[in-house]
Simulated scan of single mutants.
Amino acid sequence: MDIVDPARRSRMMAGIRSKDTRPEMTVRSAAHALGYRFRIHRADLPGRPDLVFPGRRMVIFVHGCYWHRHEGCPYATTPKSNTEFWLEKFEKNVARDRKAMSELVELGWDPLVIWECETRDAKVLKERIASHLGPTRG
């Protein structure tokens, strides 16, 4: 049983942003500090990647552990109420992510997923970004 009424739950869920989230802003800040320049949320690419590095043909997705089901992560919990609905929703999210990744690869792009929980350690985050993108140009 949910601890809040359906109307309040609906308002709460509607308030969850899909762009410019704190983890995404952390990744953008780290990439910029490392000297990388990028575009954001290119709608013409599958999955609408969070960061796009056109000259490198690389993209970064910043996935929330809960919504995108980071395997083995303590933040990827499943609600105790309306479980069937949530499991189906999460399954669709993961399938959509998988499809976007394979389409990007087919188009010649190199995708990277950074999980929300991985944004907590700035040093590790910067190393992960630099490892994927290679040396900065300039």
Rank of each mutant, 00 (worst) to 15 (best):
R28Q: 10
S29W: 14
S29I: 08
A30M: 04
A31H: 11
A31L: 14
H32C: 03
A33S: 15
L34E: 04
L34F: 02
R37T: 04
R37M: 00
R37A: 00
F38V: 05
R39P: 02
R39Y: 03
H41W: 01
A43P: 11
A43F: 10
A43R: 15
D44N: 10
L45W: 00
L45S: 02
L45M: 06
G47L: 07
G47K: 10
G47M: 09
R48V: 13
P49C: 06
D50R: 02
D50I: 04
D50Y: 00
D50M: 01
L51T: 01
V52L: 08
V52R: 11
G55Y: 09
G55Q: 13
G55A: 12
M58T: 02
I60L: 14
F61C: 09
V62A: 08
V62D: 01
V62F: 04
G64P: 10
C65A: 14
C65F: 13
C65S: 14
Y66S: 01
Y66G: 01
Y66P: 03
W67A: 10
W67G: 12
W67M: 09
W67K: 10
H68F: 06
R69K: 13
H70K: 14
H70N: 13
E71D: 15
G72I: 02
G72L: 03
C73H: 00
P74T: 05
Y75V: 04
A76F: 07
T77Y: 15
T77H: 11
T78E: 11
T78Y: 08
T78G: 08
T78C: 08
P79F: 07
K80C: 03
S81K: 02
T83C: 12
T83W: 14
E84W: 07
E84S: 15
F85K: 13
W86Q: 12
W86D: 04
L87A: 13
L87I: 07
E88L: 06
E88Y: 08
K89H: 04
F90I: 15
E91C: 13
N93I: 09
N93V: 12
